[in-house]
Design a protein around this nucleic acid. Structure first.
Lengths: 146, 146
DNA sequence: TTGAGTGCAAAGTGTTTGCATGATC
DNA sequence: GATCATGCAAACACTTTGCACTCAA
């Protein structure tokens, strides 16, 4: 039963924030930490329940909300209907490039986005509050047919 | 009963595509053409029904789906939960800056996004297929307190 | 005239909430 | 031991679908 860095970091943050570290939360965090794919609530529930039978779907919803509020997890709006989630790895502000095949997520930062934001503020008079910048594509593996 | 350019363009496109131009569709298109705000399905339904009593919510859903498929309307994923919609005004590929106060939408194009896309493709080996780029902020009016 | 379009009601999803039980700190 | 977390079931919110009727072309 190996413990990844990311997993440990999240559990510490939970504990430090006065939140209880329960087996269910461990299971969800472990799943998130182990893969670099984005997952929907339902997928996470299935994976977490495979580790520990007693992880309810409702708990997964509540855990994801908590982790998102704490800034430990990023919510991806992209793709289609349901939001999906990935562990937040870089400390600084970043964006995501998501593989439409396997769901693998690449984090990246870009001064282009900040520059664009400045330009928009200047030209429109808006005070920019936030943005969604997400790219989708096929990763090298999926392009090669696995 | 004034008819805006946008309204006319959309109705022509509908007709040209072999779709019927019904009073209900007219009402939805008119509402969309008259304002530069993004609106949810429910908001559009309320506004369209105010013009003509007999516009059902289901028809609004179906009309928005059709218009989106035809590329006449843009679906905004941003904000919170439900998607919202705006008439597609520029012909070319563009992005949106949305006011979090009044919902006004500014269309813009940016070579920064294309540049970023190229860089990502080069550095990650991904074949980029699409992106979501949406900014939110407060428009000058809303900043001034209306 | 005729098939696309509409409205209604019902069914489908995905998510949240109320409440009693259970486990962490 | 007190409190926060969990699970279940029920409630919710949004969207889609089945079906008979209507109307634009």
């Amino acid at each position: 039963m190996t413990t990844t860095d990311g997993e440990h970091k999240v559990l510490s943050a939970l504990h430090g924030g006065g939140h209880k570290v329960t087996p269910q939360r461990r299971a969800v965090v472990r799943v998130l930490a182990r893969c670099h794919r984005h997952m929907t609530t339902a997928e996470l529930h299935a994976a977490a329940a495979a580790e520990r039978g007693d992880v309810g779907l409702v708990t997964v919803y509540r855990t994801l909300r908590l982790l998102t509020d704490l800034g430990l997890v990023c919510q991806l709006s992209a793709d289609g209907r349901q939001p999906s989630y990935v562990l937040r790895r870089p400390e600084e502000h970043h964006h995501h490039l998501v593989c439409s095949g396997c769901g693998h997520v690449v984090d990246f930062t870009s001064s282009d986005v900040e520059r664009l934001e400045d330009r928009l503020a200047r030209e429109t008079g808006y005070r920019i509050e936030g943005h969604i910048v997400e790219f989708t594509g096929q990763c090298p593996d999926c392009r090669a047919g696995r």
